[in-house]
Design a protein around this nucleic acid. Structure first.
Length: 447
RNA sequence: GAGGUUGUAGCUCAGUCGGUUAGAGCGUCGGUUUGUGGUACCGAAGGUCGGGGGUUCGAGACCCCUCAUCCUCCCCA
């Protein structure tokens, strides 16, 4: 006998967890649908060529590859095999891999179906993704993403809509959050103002860590990345800017930076017209790692909880370009369902009703009343009431304990007298109150 | 990929300086006499001490290897 186990970084979801996760997915899905996004599902596995090179060198390492079937060594790159070059060998023994995110498969889908799709195309997708990362708190090797993207329009209307989606979804989950917005063009403006436009990526990676390592840490990071003192001083001044207006003079010689500010102003103008439940702020330190973002970027942080971001997204000017279709601009957001779960759990924000599985348990005493209970259960179920019968008549203690453990709110006793009269004794497990009713009356009461 | 942590009953964990038959709480099962649960009392089952090797008269404890786990960094949701 072997001890069973599941792979590192994966999880089973028990009944209660599935219900709670479903609550998150349903809530998010409803909001997506309300804004006109359409559902899409893509395969768990993609051709490796679709995935590689889209997430940087680090990303390629984190891809799960699927070994070819059959005699895969026969077709292996013999040279790479002989020289033990794993990286080069991979492509010859694995032609498929597990999806790493939902955005790249979406781009692939759009390219393959560009002839039949109606643009702008708004889709949402709720599916698991896999990453061969080292698991740790809030990070798993299999986790779900809930993405909404619109492709084929560069209207800033969508940035505003996606912000509203975040706001509405978290409001529906009753989870207070801060929605942070920035623009990559503004970040580029900083680089230009500091005279280090060529070091844009290094700069953003460093700035992104501000809330985590503080201004000292950012200074250290920038220094380590070889950025000179004068540039660092300029960057620090800009990061301390009070408002977008204050940035305009600083960006006087950066058309890109000014354009970024214009875009943000437009988005906030849209948002000023709607009532928002959550705080939406411009955060110049927000950078986000993914290199393909080109315009507005978003990130959501839960208030009152120590947890990484629970959502993020942004605009990418040309996502389908790598698949041969340039010029399609897209913008999207993602909800980190697993982290949202942990936060809701920590703050006790899941509705009580999710714990309730079955409405009523039927209890009997002997074979004849067991049969009677079976008939009653059928009637209750016909009326749409979720009903269970305890499988062994007799011992009431056991049967009541079962109801308590399963958190079944009502118990109905099918005894000899009840059977004779065609009714049941119903007990409310919370109040202890009992009454004698017919199955039809019970169904009405529980409806 | 780098560094660290922890593996003892179904779960959470004790286990002294290496010393006899391996401990608790919770949970599970049975009972406290026959139509009423969450409480109380009584009792029972349940362990190859992650696995392998070594040191020793003797190893759950010490050493080596290995597997798993969780955490930190990198990166990310």
């Amino acid at each position: 006998m072997q001890k069973p186990s599941i792979p590192e970084g994966t999880r089973d979801f028990g009944p209660e967890q599935v219900r709670k996760r479903g609550y998150i997915f349903d809530t998010v899905r409803d909001v997506f649908a309300k804004f006109g996004f359409q559902p899409l599902e893509t395969p768990a596995m993609e051709n490796l060529s679709t995935l590689t090179g889209k997430y940087g060198d680090e990303g390629d390492k984190l891809l799960f590859k699927i070994l070819n079937n059959g005699d895969y060594l026969k077709d292996a790159n013999q040279e790479a095999l002989a020289s033990r070059d794993s990286v080069r060998l991979t492509s010859s023994i694995a032609k498929r891999g597990l999806r790493y995110d939902l955005t790249v498969p979406f781009a692939r889908y759009v390219v393959m179906n560009r002839g039949t799709l109606c643009f702008p195309f708004k889709r949402y997708q709720i599916q698991p993704v896999w990453r061969a990362d080292r698991p740790q708190r809030g990070r798993y090797r299999e986790f779900y993403q809930c993405d909404a993207d619109v492709i084929g329009s560069d209207s800033l209307l969508y940035e505003a809509e996606l912000t509203q989606i975040y706001d509405e979804a978290f409001a529906a989950l009753r989870l207070p959050v801060t929605i942070k917005i920035n623009n990559r063009k503004v970040l580029f403006g900083i680089a230009e103002a500091a005279g280090i436009a060529d070091r844009f990526m290094d700069m953003t990676v460093a700035i992104d860590k501000l809330d985590k390592v503080g201004i000292e840490g950012v200074r250290k990071e920038l220094t380590e990345r070889g950025i000179d003192m004068a540039a660092i001083a300029t960057i620090e001044t800009i990061l301390a800017a009070e408002s977008r207006e204050a940035l305009r003079p600083i960006f006087a010689n950066s058309p890109t930076g000014l354009l970024g500010l214009d875009e943000l102003d437009r988005v906030f103008r849209f948002l000023s017209k709607v009532e928002l439940t959550n705080e939406v702020v411009f955060d110049i330190t927000l950078a986000r790692g993914l290199s393909y973002y080109t315009g507005c970027i978003f990130e959501v942080a839960a208030k009152n909880v120590k947890m990484g971001s629970i959502g993020g997204g942004g605009r990418y000017a040309d996502l389908t370009g790598v698949f041969g279709v340039p010029g399609l601009s897209g913008v999207g957001v993602s909800f980190g369902a697993d982290r949202i779960y942990d936060v809701l759990e920590e703050l006790h924000l899941f509705p009580e009703s999710l714990l309730e599985s079955v409405k009523i348990l039927l209890i009997s005493f002997d074979e004849p009343t067991f049969d009677y209970a079976f008939e009653c259960a059928t009637q209750l179920r016909k009326a749409g009431i979720s009903t269970e019968i305890y499988p062994d008549p007799g011992k009431l203690k056991k049967q009541f304990e079962y109801a308590a453990k399963r958190r079944i709110p009502f118990v109905a006793l099918a005894g000899e007298s009840e059977m004779a009269a065609g009714n049941l004794t119903v007990k409310n497990q919370t109040t202890g109150e009992q009454q004698v009713l017919t199955p039809v009356e019970i169904a009405q009461m529980l409806q």
